[in-house]
């Protein structure tokens, strides 16, 4: 289950949001987007030390400032099952791109660079392969 699917499901539910600066916001989730930016209604903001409170009818919180969200327990049972489709997509990628090819590069073409798709995983491993042989050659000299 994806965290943002759960958050989307939690729309119209009450929640507690703690920001990175320690402030907490209690309110009802109105809407959210793929960046975790959220709209809350009927908000009570509590200062970091819990000694000051502010009430506001609504607020908008930038996702990147959030530390965590506390959501009512029952919401997790309401998430629509889109996880199966997502997993299938991930599995296809594993065999079709990066992962599989990276492994091949490591064995067969140690010094190969810039192979599409293998670029991230394979490239790194290739670099190591290239470096290792000279290192082994040096050893007998010492």
């Amino acid at each position: 289950m994806l965290p943002l699917s759960l958050l989307r499901t939690a729309q119209n539910h009450p929640m507690l949001v703690e920001l990175k600066n320690g402030e907490t916001y209690n309110g009802h989730l109105v809407s959210c987007d793929n960046w975790m930016n959220i709209n809350l209604r009927e908000v009570i903001c509590t200062s970091r030390d819990g000694d000051k409170f502010w009430r506001m009818p609504e607020c908008y919180i930038r996702g990147s400032t959030i530390k965590y969200l506390r959501i009512p327990d029952e919401v997790i049972d309401m998430v629509k099952e889109e996880t199966i489709v997502k997993n299938r997509g991930r599995g296809d990628m594993k065999s079709g791109r990066g992962g599989g090819q990276g492994g091949q590069n490591q064995r067969n073409r140690p010094a190969a660079r810039g192979n599409f798709g293998g670029g991230r995983g394979g490239g790194k491993a290739g670099g190591q392969g290239g470096r290792n042989p000279p290192f082994q050659k040096q050893k007998p000299k010492q």
Partner: peptide, 11 residues
Amino acid sequence: MLGLHIIRGDN
């Protein structure tokens, strides 16, 4: 005790 949480990856 806290219950259900989403923790943002940054943290």
